[in-house]
Amino acid sequence: MTTRIAGLEPANLTVHLGLGLVLLLWMVPEAYMVSIAMRAPETVFDPTLFTWPLTFDNFVTVIKDNPLPSFFLNSLIVTVATVILVLAVSSLFAFAVAVLRLPGTTVLYAVLLTTLMVPMASLVLPLAILLKTFGWVNRYVGLIFPYVALGAPFAVVILKAFMEDAPKELFEAARVDGCTPWQTFIHVTLPLVRPALVFVAIWQFIVTWNEFFLALIVMTENEMKTVTIVPMQYSGLYMANPGALFAILTIIALPLIGLYVLVQRAFVRGLLAGAVKG
């Protein structure tokens, strides 16, 4: 054995140093964001990554002057409703395809999957017209329903794969025990695919929270805007005051980053358990 540093062998230490170096480089934009947010007016235009001294004044100013909590509330309502609906709708559908194996479902499944090929760019115009007809512009449902329609197919793919991997005998036993399909769904199937449900919920949360294109078109009133589209208006408002703008950007970026750090273990576990098999 050669000398070990921090419990690592030399070759492994090199790999760790290499990864750490790449990571430092990769984190420059995130660090730059926080760095500008913590600058005083004198240093804010310095073309360097870090400056000294640091100040929290920008955060105090932007929190005092702007209705940031209401934007977060909008995002939270839209995102949580979307996640719940996607889980409900897609697990029901996957159950019918994978467990009940109703005649005709394979065709319907294939049709539903075509959604995965549809880029948002090709749907914004017709969705905008449709939502206008329904009077759903600047309404939460105007975002929630299209998000559910676009998110459900991916969730169906994942949940169907997990349900097909589950031991058939369990469903058979439930049937023999006299469970109705609904009872089999609630008491047998959903507990079995819990890791998949968690994985789908996390991914759908990230995607919905960060969606930009449709939110930009549907939420035009200031009170209805989600956090992803508010930086735009502030970039104009705080053109001459980047410190304040970047304080807002930091406030907007950090909650989701923090949330991901909290749930990443469950997310990666779902991914490793075969969410990525297809």
Binding site: M33, I206, N210, V230, Y260
Partner: peptide, 8 residues
Amino acid sequence: PVVTSVSV
């Protein structure tokens, strides 16, 4: 970066 809001 994937979970950082794209507008940010």
